[in-house]
Every structure is written in structure tokens, then in C-alpha cells.
């Protein structure tokens, strides 16, 4: 007797061929989001607000409503959507340059207002689409096309820890940092996304899941090499775990 043990999520176009680079985790996260939307049965309520950059490529894959906001303004646009249509499941999907550099004010302000939507934050420490420029989350010493000798603290400061920064605010409900560098962490990421969406459905307020991912192309490595880099370099700087979970206080 045949038993169905796995089926592809309908939330990602079946005929879409990945335009993401080999080893890129945008496709992994797209799949996780799709599975969560299906499991929560909210595919027809979902609205994704994409940031600018590689995140925007998801419009080729997402089979649910999605819009592109101006660079960095996803949390502002999501505010406009969610406030006028509370029945929608609204989440932003942003990279580190978008969320933590040009859009830091929008991110912090939405979190501080406790907006009832979810943020999926893809942190790979580099600008992808524009070609490997230094991001606010670029590691110290890490080379970038605009920091050819590597990030120097005396000139560029240090990587921004978004979850820890937002943890200084009172309003945010749930902040967790995960990764997709091994099957265990992929499962944890899915669980975190599900929790963030469920929080929104329950009207709990602002949830953010920071996902530490790789960018083999702009890191100058390959898919496997990027997994090692995440484990050895990124995770010591961006430790995984729940930074804030108010449901534990309820």
C-alpha cells in the first residue's frame, strides 16, 4: 500500500524553476512559508510584503498575494495593509540591507508600535542582488565589494543584532533567530515561522523571525562551503534561539 509521506507545497508555483543561485536559502524559506500557510489553512488570507533585492525574486514563486514595497519600507507598507484589513495574514519578507540599514527606522517603529503582523528577516550578511556590498550585518573582517579589505570596526562599526536591538523595546511579542544550514535548523525555522503567523492570527502583535542564511555567490564560496561558513562564522556572531517570547509570560 502506498502512503503519501511528502507533497510539494501548493503555495510555491510548481512550474517555477529556481532562479536563485545554487546554495541560496531563499527557496528553502519559500517552501517553509508555503507549508506553514497550508498547514494553518490561511493561503487565501496571506499577503506578503517583499523588500527590494533578491527577496523580490520571490514574486516568481509565491502563489499567494504579494506586493513589493519601496526599499526598506516593507514594515510601513505592511502597517497600511494590516491596519485596514485585519483579516489578512500579513508578513514582510526582507533582507538585511532592506530591514536593518535603509529600513531600520521602519522596522524599529513597527515593532515599537506592536503592529500585528509578522516579519521574516533573511540575514546573510551581504547585499545579494546588487553584488556583494557591505551590509549592516556583515561580519568583522568579512570582505565585501564596498569593503575590499574587509569590515573594519574602526571604520564600519560592528554587525547589527536585530533581534537583540528589538528586544530593548516593550511591544514586540516574539523574536527568534534561526538558520537553515542543517535539517534540524530548517525544522526549527519552520516552527518559528508557524509560531509567528499563529501569533498574528491570535492578535498578539509583532513577531520577527531572523533566519541566518548563506550567500555562496557573494561570499565567494559554494553551497557546501557556505554551510560551513554559517556554522563557523555567522552563528557565533548571531547565536540562534528565542530572544523574546511573551507567550511564556502569559
Amino acid at each position: 500500500m502506498e502512503e503519501l509521506v511528502y507533497t510539494r507545497t501548493k503555495a510555491v508555483f510548481e512550474n517555477a524553476v529556481s532562479g536563485f543561485c545554487p546554495g541560496c536559502m531563499h527557496s528553502t524559506v519559500a517552501k517553509l512559508i508555503g507549508e506553514v500557510l497550508e498547514e494553518l489553512d490561511i493561503l487565501d488570507k496571506a499577503v506578503c510584503v517583499k523588500g527590494i533585492g533578491c527577496c523580490g525574486l520571490q514574486s516568481n514563486y509565491f502563489a499567494f498575494d504579494n506586493i513589493t514595497a519601496a526599499h526598506g519600507r516593507a514594515c510601513a507598507a505592511a502597517t497600511g495593509i494590516k491596519r485596514t484589513n485585519p483579516a489578512s495574514l500579513v508578513f514582510t519578507y526582507q533582507g538585511d540591507g532592506d530591514l536593518a540599514s535603509i529600513g531600520l527606522a521602519e522596522t524599529v517603529s513597527a515593532a515599537n508600535r506592536g503592529e500585528n503582523f509578522s516579519v521574516i528577516f533573511i540575514n546573510n550578511g551581504i547585499y545579494g542582488m546588487t553584488g556583494g556590498q557591505m551590509a549592516p550585518t556583515t561580519l568583522v573582517g568579512m570582505k565585501a565589494s564596498t569593503a575590499p579589505w574587509g569590515r573594519k570596526p574602526e571604520e564600519h562599526g560592528y554587525p547589527i543584532h536585530v533581534c537583540e536591538l528589538l528586544n530593548e523595546l516593550t511591544a514586540p511579542y516574539y523574536l527568534e533567530r534561526t538558520s537553515c544550514n542543517n535539517p534540524t535548523n530548517v525544522r526549527k525555522t519552520k516552527k518559528a515561522i508557524k509560531k509567528a503567523f499563529q501569533n498574528q492570527l491570535d492578535g498578539k502583535g509583532f513577531s520577527l523571525v531572523e533566519i541566518v542564511t548563506g550567500c555562496p555567490t557573494n561570499w565567494g564560496t559554494d553551497a557546501l562551503g557556505s554551510l560551513d561558513f554559517i556554522e563557523e562564522k555567522m552563528l557565533p556572531e548571531f547565536p540562534l534561539g528565542v530572544i523574546r517570547d511573551k507567550s511564556k509570560e502569559d
Binding site: V49, R73, A76, A77, A78, G80, I81, A105, E106
Partner: peptide, 18 residues
């Protein structure tokens, strides 16, 4: 939080038909 954010909020609300 700024003019820049405000107009993007309006963009969002407009995207949702309001």
C-alpha cells in the same frame, strides 16, 4: 515615523483597496 514611512503606509493601504 517619517514622511518616507507614512507614504509607504498609504501605499500599503491602497494596495489593500482602502
Amino acid at each position: 515615523e517619517s514622511e518616507v514611512a507614512s507614504i509607504s503606509m498609504v501605499y500599503g493601504a491602497g494596495c489593500a483597496g482602502t
